[in-house]
C-alpha cells in the first residue's frame, strides 16, 4: 500500500501522459492540473461549475468510475458539442485504489 495509483491522460493531440505513484484522495483533475496536462484548465478550481476539465473515460473503466450525477450532467450538457456517453468532469472523479490504471482522453474545449 501507500504506493499510489497510476493514471493516464491522452491529450487532444494524442500524446500520452502517464503518472505513477499518484496519491489517491485527490481528484483526477488535480493530477492533470498539477502536471500541466494540456486541456485540463480547471478554471473553477474543482467546483463542478465550468466544464474545463472534461474527459472521456476509457470504456473499460466506465463501470468503476461511475456516471455523472445530475449537477455534473447539467454542466456537461452546456458543452453538448463535445459530450459523449463516457463524458465526465475530472474534478468529480475522486481517485482511489480501485481506479489504479485509469485511462482517460482529454475532451476538446473549443479554444
Amino acid at each position: 500500500m501507500a504506493m499510489g495509483v497510476t493514471v493516464t491522460f491522452v491529450e487532444e493531440g494524442g500524446a500520452e501522459r502517464k503518472f505513477e505513484g499518484v496519491e489517491p484522495s485527490q481528484s483526477l483533475m488535480e493530477v492533470g492540473r498539477t502536471h500541466g496536462v494540456s486541456g485540463i484548465l480547471a478554471d473553477c478550481g474543482g467546483a463542478c461549475a465550468c466544464a474545463t476539465c472534461h474527459v472521456y473515460v476509457d470504456d473499460a473503466w466506465m463501470e468503476k468510475v461511475g456516471s455523472a450525477d445530475a449537477i455534473e450532467a447539467e454542466m456537461l450538457d452546456l458543452v453538448s458539442e463535445f459530450q459523449k456517453p463516457n463524458s465526465r468532469l475530472s474534478c468529480q472523479i475522486r481517485l482511489r485504489e480501485e481506479l489504479d490504471g485509469l485511462r482517460v482522453e482529454v475532451a476538446p474545449n473549443g479554444y
Binding site: D43, C44, C48, C50, T52, V79, S80, E81, Y111
Partner: peptide, 21 residues
C-alpha cells in the same frame, strides 16, 4: 446551442467568476 457553456460572461481562466454557481 451546442456550445452554450463557451460564453465568457463569467470570464475565464484562473479568474473565472468564483460565484458562478
Amino acid at each position: 446551442r451546442s456550445n452554450l457553456g463557451r460564453h465568457v460572461s463569467f470570464g475565464g481562466g484562473p479568474h473565472r467568476c468564483i460565484g458562478l454557481s
